[in-house]
Amino acid sequence: MNAQVTQRADEIKQLVCRVLEVEESQVGETDLFTDDLEADSMKLIELLAHLEIEFDVEIDEDEIERLVNLRGVYDVLSAALDA
């Protein structure tokens, strides 16, 4: 995992919870956004946009498929920051 992502893991989780409109206590690292947290495809696009804005980084649209859970978010963000 990218060092910045490790360091800002809590902040990322807060952002995810804000976008998905769920309480932080509800979200484990492997909970599925769509199946467990009722997110739809619009929410995932929103999440990708907020990650780009917060980290000032470009993430390929196809990466949405990997934004399945918190761990996926960390991976996608790490890959984008390392690129």
Binding site: M42, I45, A49, H50, D56
Partner: peptide, 11 residues
């Protein structure tokens, strides 16, 4: 004002 013109909140 953001670095990319599409860094907007789609929601």
């Amino acid at each position: 004002t953001r670095r990319r013109p599409y860094f907007v909140n789609p929601a």
